[in-house]
C-alpha cells in the first residue's frame, strides 16, 4: 500500500491512452502528491496540441447542457474529447457536490470521451489550482478537444481565459441588468457569447441588447469580434434544440481565425506564462517555508507581525534576500 508509485509506468500508460492511469495522475495533481512534479515534467512535452474550449457563465445558465451538445458534435467529427467540470468546494466542510456530470449522460459509455469533475478546493477564478495540469494530462492522454466548464461565474471567475483558446460566455434572457454590469469585464473575455434558453421570454430583447453593446465596442483591424449565438439546448423533441450547429460553426471560424492571424501562438505563450507564474508562486512558497522549518523563525516572524513590531512586507524582503541574490 505504501509502495512508491512507479512514475515511468504511469506516464507511459497515460501516453497509451489508459484511463485508469490518466485518472490516477489527475488525483496526484489534485492532492499535491510529491510524484506530481516528476510526472508533469515528462507529460508537458506531449501537450499543447489540443483545441481548448472554455465555458463560463452564471450558475444554471446551461453550461453543462451545452457541453453535452458540444461533445456530441465533436464525436460526430470523430474527435476524441476530454472534459473538465469545476464546481465549488464548501468553505465550511471542504467537501463538494459535483453535479455537472448528470447532464453528460449521453456519453457515459463512449470510450472517446474522458470526463473529470473537480472541486475548486478554495482556488479563486472559477477553476481549481489543479486544472492547469489536469488539462495537460488530458491532452497527453490523446484528447483532441478539451472542454473546460468553470464553476458558475459571477464577475471574477475568468481565469479560464488563461487556458482556453476559445472562450464561451453563456448568458440567459432576463439577465439584462447583469449583462449591463458585465460588459466591462466578463464580456470582453468572450470569444462567443451564447444566449442560451432562447426559448424563454425576453430572448429577443436580450439578443438586441447584446448586439447593441457589441457594436458599440471598438475592435482593431483584423481582431476577432465576439459573436452572439442564441441557443435552445433542451426540449422534448430533437427539433426543439436550436443553434448548436451555428455554435459549432462559430467555434470553427474562431479556430481558423486564430490559425490565420497567428494569435494562437500568443494565446499559447500567455498560457505558459500564466502557468509559469503559478508554479513559481507555489514552489517558492514551499521552498521558503521548508527553509524556515525547525529554525523557529517563522513563528517569531508571525508573532512580531501580530504584535505590530514588524510587518509582512519587511519580513518577506528579509527572507527573500537570504534566498535570492537580486541584481540591484
Amino acid at each position: 500500500m505504501n509502495k512508491r508509485p512507479d512514475i515511468d509506468q504511469m506516464v507511459n500508460r497515460l501516453f497509451s491512452g489508459d484511463r485508469r492511469a490518466t485518472a490516477r495522475l489527475i488525483t496526484w495533481v489534485e492532492d499535491g502528491m510529491e510524484e506530481t512534479r516528476e510526472a508533469m515534467r515528462r507529460i508537458y512535452p506531449r501537450t499543447g496540441k489540443a483545441k481548448i474550449i472554455g465555458i463560463t457563465g452564471a450558475g444554471g445558465a446551461g453550461k453543462s447542457t451545452l457541453t453535452d451538445h458540444l461533445i456530441r458534435k465533436f464525436r460526430e467529427q470523430d474527435k476524441t474529447v476530454g472534459v473538465v467540470l469545476v464546481d465549488p468546494s464548501s468553505p465550511f466542510s471542504g467537501g463538494a457536490f459535483l453535479g455537472d456530470r448528470i447532464r453528460l449522460q449521453n456519453h457515459s459509455q463512449d470510450d472517446g470521451v474522458y470526463i473529470r469533475s473537480m472541486a475548486s478546493r478554495g482556488y479563486l477564478g472559477g477553476l481549481s489550482r489543479a486544472t492547469y495540469d489536469v488539462i495537460r494530462i488530458i491532452e497527453a492522454m490523446g484528447a483532441e478537444v478539451v472542454i473546460v466548464e468553470t464553476l458558475g461565474a459571477g464577475q471574477d471567475e475568468i481565469d479560464v481565459i488563461h487556458i482556453a483558446h476559445t472562450c464561451l460566455l453563456v448568458v440567459t434572457p432576463g439577465m439584462g441588468d447583469d449583462i449591463q454590469a458585465m460588459k466591462a469585464g466578463i464580456m470582453e473575455i468572450a470569444t462567443i457569447i451564447v444566449l442560451n434558453k432562447a426559448d424563454l421570454e425576453g430572448a429577443n430583447a436580450c439578443l438586441r441588447h447584446l448586439n447593441t453593446t457589441l457594436s458599440a465596442a471598438s475592435f482593431e483591424e483584423g481582431e476577432w469580434v465576439p459573436k452572439v449565438i442564441p441557443t435552445v439546448s433542451v426540449g422534448g423533441k430533437p427539433q426543439d434544440i436550436q443553434g448548436i450547429d451555428e455554435l459549432i460553426s462559430a467555434i470553427q471560424e474562431h479556430h481558423a481565425h486564430l490559425q490565420k492571424t497567428d494569435a494562437i501562438d500568443q494565446i499559447k505563450s500567455e498560457r505558459v506564462e500564466h502557468e509559469l507564474g503559478l508554479i513559481f508562486k507555489d514552489e517558492l512558497q514551499k521552498l521558503i517555508f521548508k527553509g524556515l522549518k525547525g529554525t523557529g523563525r517563522k513563528k517569531r516572524y508571525i508573532e512580531n507581525i501580530v504584535k505590530g513590531k514588524d510587518d509582512p512586507y519587511s519580513v518577506v524582503d528579509e527572507v527573500l534576500k537570504t534566498y535570492i541574490k537580486t541584481k540591484e
Binding site: S90, S93, G95, F97, L98, I102, Q105, Q109, S117, A119
Partner: peptide, 16 residues
C-alpha cells in the same frame, strides 16, 4: 457526505 468534507459526484438516475 459533502458536509463531512468529501467530494461527491452525483451521477443521476437511470444509470447502467
Amino acid at each position: 457526505l459533502k458536509e463531512a468534507g468529501m467530494e461527491v459526484i452525483y451521477l443521476g438516475m437511470f444509470q447502467t
